[in-house]
Design a protein around this nucleic acid. Structure first.
Lengths: 221, 221
DNA sequence: CAGCATCCGCTTTGATACTG
DNA sequence: CAGTATCAAAGCGGATGCTG
């Protein structure tokens, strides 16, 4: 492992997680929990398989990741974050927060996985009617369908489908994200190719308090 | 510039600042403010000069750094963070926070610059007697002397020396840091080679509320 | 001297092929 | 499924040279 050899805590952090792909491996483990090798590779489009193996080995040695032999029904090895690895979550969330401003400029051919929506959704959405009835939005964009659920004021995401979601939206990732965080109005989005079905007010209920046409320079909560 | 080509805000952030040395360049600009090329290079021991030039160019193009022609007394170009670059501070602080746990294991031959102490000091120290008289600690370790000042309850650092500091400590960086954040008692530190002169109680005044022998797993404020 | 650009040997990576 | 093996291309570290 290469080191900056500087007595500085930021440099020490980067000695451990600063190499290419490493933080994205941690992202996968944070968003999906304990994962198999193949699932990690699927969540990291573009990574070379030997690199994934090497990063996992390094992270294990650094004490951020633990391997685990799963019991018979799965019968494979799982990778999961250790508590020490989990402690990096606030830092990665901050980095992701900063990157939100770059999302509208993303090229349309970027690869995408549904669970990546979890970060922006949980950062930017809040239930304006916490005492209202539970609500479910189903999102279909680039692969596996996702659910956004608000129960007792808490907004959560998970993969899967719902029997009768209050709202179902589908379309290209950029448009879906823009719509979810309120950057694009539902009607605008529909005109640009977004499909939806159900109750549009479900979306309005999740916009954060300060939401409007605010282009803004990155609000800090 | 190489990109992960993933529609994920963390990946987008890393597309901009994920390459080797980039975050450390930002650290220098955050800790030292507007800097000359040579000062940056001095604060980044180990970097190849062409890499520094390239990183600065990339950061400028990404809008995180601005060049500035300094007026006659300096008569050179200065590099400074733009507001957009400054927005990364919370993220880098979180990363640095995580790395604090690694500092005691650092090899003794790591390079060191005094201003790197700023991060840990401002994160870990607080004035227990905010209404007490202003206080100054001078720190001499690896190069230019540093001051830690507490005025009206706010703990700040800057480079320089004091006429009559309440306390002056000097020694190897690891020992000095351990002493400052209360991981090592002053007497222990003295036995291991730390030199000090003045009033030891100045140090006790700056320890955070929860300070004791707590080895701890990274307290989160 | 400050502020780079160029050249070169070495390491890391990316893409693909192969194995238990 | 869960990796290892291979190899070309890109990136990096170090030294040196050039320019105002």
């Amino acid at each position: 492992v290469r080191s900056y050899k500087q007595f500085c805590s930021l440099a020490k952090t980067l000695d451990v997680i600063g190499e290419r792909w490493t933080m994205l491996v941690l992202r996968e483990l944070m968003l999906r929990g304990a994962s198999r090798y193949t699932d990690l590779r699927d969540g990291l489009p573009g990574i070379a398989t030997n690199l994934l193996a090497e990063r996992l080995r390094d992270l294990e040695q650094a004490g951020l990741v633990a391997r685990e032999e799963a019991p018979p029904p799965v019968a494979t090895t799982l990778y999961r974050l250790t508590p020490r690895g989990e402690e990096l979550r606030p830092a990665l969330v901050e980095l992701a927060q900063w990157g939100m401003a770059l999302m509208p400029d993303a090229p349309d051919d970027d690869s995408f996985r549904g669970h990546w929506l979890e970060l922006p959704v949980e950062l930017h959405l809040a239930d304006r009617e916490p005492d209202g009835p539970p609500m479910t939005i189903e999102v279909r964009t680039g692969g596996a369908p996702m659910l956004i659920e608000s129960v007792d004021g808490a907004v959560r995401t998970r993969s899967g489908t719902a029997e009768h979601p209050d709202l179902l939206i589908s379309g290209p990732p950029k448009l879906v994200l823009g719509t979810l965080i309120g950057k694009v109005g539902l009607q605008d989005a529909a005109a640009r190719g977004l499909q939806y079905e159900g109750d549009p007010s479900a979306l309005a209920r999740l916009q954060p308090p300060g939401a409007a046409v605010t282009e803004a320079a990155g609000p800090r909560p």
